[in-house]
Write a protein that binds this DNA or RNA. Structure first.
Lengths: 141, 141
DNA sequence: GTCTAAGTGAAAATCAGTTTCAATAAGACA
DNA sequence: TGTCTTATTGAAACTGATTTTCACTTAGAC
């Protein structure tokens, strides 16, 4: 997500573009997938040392509302965030041994959404997370 | 999940079968899918009035460890639980308008798990939640 | 029946996330 | 460029879900 596009979206939503928001956006893209607020705060502080954690939470809320970021839940009790990629989405592979998170661009959910629509429920989004053991942890145990 | 099987699993895991645990198990099966700790506590209290919320949390943790229950995350900041059905699983359809939760037994994730295995990651479980609008909310808006 | 470790309840603690409020600053307009 | 309105910010206090502590109880092995 480049800055100009993001700034445009924020302004279109009646929001202002601040140094803190630029820092959070850059932190999000640098951190890649499924970073938590604490991590994003730490990274954003490199570019804007005075930014508070509260501002990070509020910024992530604004970004989510404007479609610039999305939340991810991996079951560890905290909300994670990542920049949205336009027209694409991915899913997470969480290793139950080392905790590392990989991703996959493949998704087999669309046909299911069709079946569900035939029952009257219109699916607009889905979350899919896969859990198991990564190659490294599988061989070393 | 019937009581005898559940009791057997608990004992096999070195755990004891208590009146409180029986109450939580029954509450889980009566409440059906994706109930939160507060709801489970309220229902369990009908059978065991002195049970505390803390015990409910601890029991759900034990049940999850023994495979009697599983957690569900719908993004509202609380963990939900449901009794596991042996050899089967289902997914949740969450209406973004009325909040009602429906389920589907269909699942198109298995082929994806195969693809991922070929890359070295062994999937042992997955979570899939679908969000959108139920028939009722679709027509009334 | 005895005994011991697992389980319990109540209160206190923790932890992620939210709210409040006074101060700051984006950006619309003169 | 300066002015003004209002969104945004930071710090501190708060909230709500969940966990920990600790003294007391009890399941179930012997």
């Amino acid at each position: 997500m480049d800055l100009d596009r993001a700034a445009g979206r924020l302004r279109a939503g009646g929001r202002r573009v601040t140094a803190q928001r630029r820092a959070v956006l850059r932190a999000l893209t640098e951190l890649g997938c499924a970073a938590d607020a604490e991590e994003i705060h730490g990274r954003a502080r490199r570019m804007h040392p005075r930014i508070g954690l509260v501002t990070v939470y509020r910024t992530l809320e604004a970004f989510t509302a404007e479609g610039l970021a999305q939340s991810v839940f991996l079951g560890d009790g905290r909300t994670r965030y990542e920049a949205t990629e336009q027209g694409r989405h991915h899913h997470h592979l969480v290793c139950l041994h080392c905790g590392r998170i990989a991703t996959t661009d493949e998704c087999t959910v669309q046909p299911l959404e069709g079946t569900i629509l035939r029952r009257g429920f219109e699916v607009t989004a889905h979350r899919l997370e896969l859990f198991g053991y990564c190659a490294r942890c599988r061989t070393r145990r």
